[in-house]
Design a protein around this nucleic acid. Structure first.
Length: 434
RNA sequence: GUGAGUGUAGCUCAGCUGGUUAGAGCACCAGGUUGUGGUCCUGGGAGUCGGGGGUUCGAAUCCCCUCACUCACCCCA
């Protein structure tokens, strides 16, 4: 084979596509029943949409696109979208004055990132995005978390398999401020705190000590604080941290009322790399914590303004297909799916092929799927093809047709009956009984 | 960008310290079976052993380089 697929991409043959569609169906079904509407944007955007928010460095992580070749636009002016949020923000901002808030939108975009692929992380993937824009109430945060959980449940996972770890950016910031950490040091500390769940605890302690040399008491405080899983017991000292704690407790209360307590937990170690989060943040992990995050998101009340629009509060998350499929596979919840076909039509005599073609159209017009062999061959051979095509039923057109009847066989049950063609067409889904 | 592992048929892989013409299972095609599939039996097509160079009488096997994939680090929207 001379040419292979680009690094980090996947080919979806029918079996893989059927599995992917099971995930897509769950995403779409759950979104719609929670009252979200589907949107889509362009697969590529102007480069500045991404550099405006993240600076020039992000260009290295993007697949950039030049303009039309013949127009001499040599420089990269566009980028394949690496995330949806900037496009969403752009769409909101363009119609901010006419959209009825809150906006509840979801999307299932294909995305591209110029990274070295590894487990759970490819260069091309799909990511379900769900956002509530224009609602500052905590119930909106609870709602999006609830929708994420709903999908996981829909796909067969339970609280024993996955956990939503929830924290809050401003809470962490105010707690660190309580401890006397200057604002300028917060960013580097976030980076270390984010590592807590990835490295062993002593390594984590050492990393903290490295950032805060000669301040063992402070290291001990942060170490203890970030390991606390009981939000109530968190030792908050200042007015600001008390308020942030109360705010997050409010979110947990709402989640409890939604019946999601088993699925959710407090974890100050959830930091998220992105700087634009302004409130609660969360990530979904497998309980064993051996995989990358299945989903992640949070509140971003300033982002739309940063991207040149009015200040509108928003909360949302993304869930990628790659880690989710890995997890479902591991739990045995991604059994092979075959699509198959309702009817496979067979002619016992080449002279009946014309009638077969007509019957196929009649069946298809009635909403059932029907196919047949393109090559006239023995009944036996056509049956083999029917089995290979995963047909549920076979219709044999033969001598009975003179009496207006056909043989219908249920391949799985092995049951066959000869029935009037008119009856079949009246009710193509009727069971085959002997 | 750094490091490790793996590349043999469409797929999953076997092939011992170098030794005839490179194998198996699955898949595919044909036949057994011109009104009945799955199972079974028989036969068949299939491979620059990732690529290039080297060592050797002889290389899938040993050495060097290179490419690709996988995993980990970095980063993670």
């Amino acid at each position: 084979m001379a040419i292979q697929a680009p690094r980090g991409t996947r080919d979806f043959y029918p079996a893989e596509m059927a599995r992917l569609n099971r995930i897509f169906d769950a995403w779409r079904r759950v979104s719609l029943r929670a009252g979200f509407e589907e949107i889509e944007g362009p697969a590529f955007e102007t480069l500045e949409l991404y550099t405006a928010k993240s600076g020039q460095e992000i260009v290295n992580e993007l697949f950039t696109v030049s303009g039309r070749g013949e127009s001499g636009e040599g420089d990269a002016r566009y980028a394949l979208r690496p995330e949806l949020t900037p496009s969403l923000a752009r769409m909101i901002n363009q119609r901010a004055r006419s959209l009825r808030m809150p906006v509840k939108w979801f999307s299932i975009p294909r995305m591209w990132r110029g990274e070295r692929p590894q487990k759970g992380r490819l260069r091309e993937f799909f990511q379900w995005n769900i956002d509530v824009v224009g609602a500052e109430e905590r119930v909106a945060d609870a709602e999006v978390i609830g929708v994420a959980v709903d999908v996981l449940r829909e796909l067969g996972l339970g609280p024993a398999d996955v956990v939503v770890k929830i924290s809050s950016r401003p809470l962490l910031a105010s707690l660190l401020a309580d401890l006397g950490i200057p604002d300028g040091d917060l960013e580097t500390l976030y980076g270390v705190i984010d590592k807590r769940r990835k490295v062993d605890l002593e390594k984590f302690r050492a990393m903290l000590a490295e950032k805060l040399p000669g301040n063992d008491a402070l290291v001990a405080s942060i170490f203890e604080m970030t390991g606390c899983t009981d939000l109530d017991a968190l030792p908050s000292q200042g007015e600001r941290s008390e308020a942030e704690k109360a705010d997050l407790l409010g979110l947990f209360r709402l989640l409890g009322e939604m019946g999601l307590s088993d699925w959710c937990g407090f974890d100050l170690g959830v930091v998220r790399g992105l700087a634009y989060y302004t409130g609660p943040v969360f990530e979904v992990f497998d309980r064993a914590a051996t995989m990358r995050a299945v989903a992640g998101g949070g509140r971003y009340d300033n982002l739309l303004e940063v991207l040149g629009g009015p200040k509108i509060p928003a909360v949302g998350f993304g869930m990628g297909d790659v880690v989710l499929a890995d997890l479902l596979q591991e739990k045995g919840l991604l059994a092979d799916a075959t699509v198959g076909v309702d009817y496979f039509l067979i002619d016992a005599d080449e002279k009946l092929f014309g009638r077969l073609l007509k019957l196929a159209r009649e069946l298809r017009a009635r909403g059932v799927s029907a196919t047949y062999s393109y090559r006239r061959s023995s009944v036996s051979k056509q049956f083999k093809q029917a089995a290979a095509a995963n047909a549920r039923r076979v219709i044999v057109l033969g001598d009975e047709l003179a009496q207006g009847r056909v043989a219908v066989k249920d391949l799985a049950a092995g049951v066959q009956a000869t029935i009037p063609l008119s009856s079949l067409l009246d009710n193509p889904s009727q069971p085959v009984t002997q």
